[in-house]
Simulated scan of single mutants.
Amino acid sequence: MPSLILLMIAGMAAYGYWNAARAAAERAGELGRNACAAAGVIWLDQTVHAAGLRLCRHESGWLGFERTFRFEYSYDGIERHVGRLVLRGDTLVSFVGPVRPNVVPFGEN
């Protein structure tokens, strides 16, 4: 009987980890898509890819996961560029990717 309880606990832990990973991937996809739309670039492949996972301490003091995702975008539809974002829980803590161009016409200051 104790082995069945341990098996159930392990199954619940695995489901909790999988569910949190899916939620983080969906949040990362939303953030990547929004960043590409705001910068006026093309979000390629319509997905993010998990690139890293590590333990970290959240601001609340609890241990949790910090997940790194990568995505690809293009300015012209030909060249591919890689963006990267890091989520701590569901909070964005780092972003490297497309930015809105800041063009100042020549002669204006």
Rank of each mutant, 00 (worst) to 15 (best):
R33P: 03
G77Q: 02
L6T: 07
S3I: 08
I9A: 15
C36D: 00
L87P: 05
V41C: 06
Y73E: 05
T91Q: 14
D45M: 01
E30L: 11
Q46W: 10
R70Q: 11
V96T: 15
D90C: 05
C36T: 03
R100S: 14
V99W: 06
I78T: 03
P2D: 15
S94F: 10
P2S: 05
A23H: 08
S3Y: 13
V82D: 07
A10H: 06
I78D: 08
N19P: 01
M1D: 11
E30T: 12
G64K: 13
I42Q: 10
P2G: 08
F95N: 01
H81F: 15
R67Q: 13
E79V: 12
T68W: 02
H58L: 14
R57T: 15
D90Y: 07
G29H: 00
R100A: 15
D76Y: 09
N19T: 12
N19C: 05
E79S: 05
L44G: 01
Q46T: 12
L53M: 11
S74R: 03
A21S: 13
L6Y: 09
A25K: 05
H81Y: 15
L6D: 12
V86K: 06
S94P: 11
A39D: 14
F106N: 10
R67E: 04
R70N: 04
I78E: 08
A35S: 11
E72C: 01
A37K: 10
N19R: 09
L7K: 12
V86W: 00
R27T: 08
H49P: 02
I5R: 02
G32E: 00
G77A: 02
A39M: 09
V93K: 00
P98V: 03
R80W: 09
V48A: 01
W62S: 13
A50D: 13
V93H: 06
G97I: 03
D76T: 02
E59R: 15
R70E: 04
V96S: 15
L55N: 09
Y17A: 12
A10K: 11
F106L: 06
F95V: 08
Y73P: 07
D45A: 07
F71D: 00
A51G: 01
L7D: 13
V96L: 15
G29Q: 04
G61K: 11
Y73R: 03
Y73T: 11
D45W: 04
Y73V: 10
L63P: 04
V104M: 13
G29L: 00
E26F: 03
L4F: 11
A28K: 00
G89W: 02
V93N: 09
L87D: 06
V104P: 07
P2E: 14
E72G: 04
H49T: 15
S3K: 12
W18E: 10
